Computed example of a mutant assay.
Amino acid sequence: MDKATIPDIARRAGLSTATVDRALNGRKGVSAANRHRVLKAAEELGYLPSDGMIMLPARPAHLVFLIPFGQNAFMRDLARSITSFASGLPLVASCNIVTMNGLGPDALERALDAISPQANGVGVVTTDRPRTRAAIARLCDSGIRVVTIASDVPDTPRSSYVGVDNRTAGRTAGQLMGMLARGREGQVAMMLGSRSFHGHHEREGGFRDLLRDRLPKLRVHSATETGEDNRRSNTATLELLRRVPDLLGIYCIGAGRAGIIEALETHPGPRPAVIVHDLTDSSRDWLRRELIDVVIDQNPRLVGEQAVTHLLGSIAASTPLLSLKPIEPRIILRENLPHRTP
C-alpha cells in the first residue's frame, strides 16, 4: 500500500488540507479538537511511526523538566532517572531539572519564566486547571514540544503523556483493598494530594467505581485532600483512628505518606490495611516492617526514561502528538520487593 498523503488524511478527518498541514507541522491556528482528529486519521492511515518506534532528532536537543518536589520522594527519584538517562544520550545537548515550588498554576508559570530560549522540549508534572492548560497551549504554540508526566493534562496540544493509566491504578487499589478486608464490612478512607492533579482524580474515581461495583460491604468514609503535606495527612489519620471504629483501610493516592505512617505507629490497636503508591526507600522500609500492605508502583526509572525518549521523538516528528502507551502499574508486596538499582 502506498504511503498516505495529506489529502488522504484530510478526507479521513473531514478537514481541509491546509488544516492538516498546520496540525502535522505543529503550527498555530488549529484547535485542540481538530489537531486530535488529524492525528487520529494520520495514525489510522499509517502516516505516523508505528507503535514501539520513535523518531530521533537530527541534532542534539535542549530538554527541560518541570517537577514539583515538595515532600514527594517519587518526584526526586523521577528527576534522578531523567538526569541519569539523558546524560548518556548524545542527542541530548542539555537536560535541566527545574524544581517547582508548589502544585498549581502559579508554580508552573514561574517555572516557565525560567526556561531557556534554547529549549526544544519540556516535560512537566502539573495540575489540570484552566491556567495550566492555557500555559501548556502557549508553550506548544511557541514551537516547544511538551510531554506531561505521571499526571496528564488532557485537552492540550501536548505531545504525549508518560505514566500509568491512573484510573486502572485506582481500580487495582480497590480490588486489593477488598482482598485485604477479607469479606468484612466496614469503612475505608482515601488521602489525596490534590484533585487538581488529573492522575489523583482518576485514581479516586477508579477506586470508588470498583468498590461500588464489586465490594458493597466496603464504604468510603472520606477522601481528604492533604496538599501532599505530611502534617495534614498525620492529623487526618489520627482523627480517623479516633472516630471511625470500623476503619478497615486507608488508600494513600499521592504523597503525604509519612504522616499516615507516623500516626499508625502511635496507634495502640490493630492497624487498618494501608495501600500507597510508589516504591521508594521509605515505602520499602514500611513494607519490611509491615506498616503498610501494598505499594502500587509506577516505576520512576521507566517513567523518566520514556519521558526523555518521547520528548526527543516529538521534537523529531512532523507531528506534535505521539501514540499514548501508559506504563503498567506494578504491585509490590513484602515478599516480592525488587532489588534496589544503583
Rank of each mutant, 00 (worst) to 15 (best):
Q71Y: 01
I136Y: 00
R340V: 09
T172S: 03
G269Y: 11
T127Q: 10
A189P: 11
G206P: 00
A93W: 04
C252A: 11
Q71M: 05
P268C: 09
A273N: 08
E109S: 13
S94T: 10
L264I: 06
V64D: 10
R59T: 15
D213C: 02
L248I: 14
L66D: 05
A73S: 09
L139D: 04
S318L: 09
A181R: 09
L291G: 03
P154F: 03
L63R: 00
G178C: 01
V30N: 10
S16T: 10
L63P: 01
T83S: 12
S233P: 03
E44Y: 04
G193W: 04
L240Y: 12
I253V: 09
A255S: 12
D152I: 02
G193N: 08
N230S: 11
I115C: 03
K28D: 11
V295F: 05
A119D: 04
T148H: 02
P300K: 03
S323A: 13
R129E: 11
R131N: 14
G256F: 04
L241F: 08
L241M: 11
M53E: 14
P320D: 07
G102L: 02
A61S: 15
P216L: 08
L238V: 13
E202K: 08
H201M: 09
R232D: 15
L48P: 14
G269L: 15
F207V: 05
G199M: 03
P60A: 07
V276Q: 06
N101C: 07
G269S: 14
D293L: 00
S233A: 13
P57F: 00
M179H: 15
V244S: 07
I136T: 05
T19A: 13
R195P: 12
A73L: 10
E328A: 14
S87C: 13
L176G: 01
T168R: 03
A134C: 05
D155F: 10
V122E: 03
G205F: 14
G46A: 12
S116Q: 13
G52N: 07
R22C: 07
L103P: 09
G46K: 15
V153C: 13
D165P: 14
G227M: 04
L312N: 05
V308F: 06
P117Y: 04
V162T: 06
P216W: 07
E290D: 13
A13V: 07
R12G: 06
L89C: 11
G199Y: 05
F207E: 01
S283W: 00
G104T: 08
R284D: 12
G206C: 01
I275A: 09
V188C: 08
H200I: 00
T235M: 12
I149Y: 00
R340I: 10
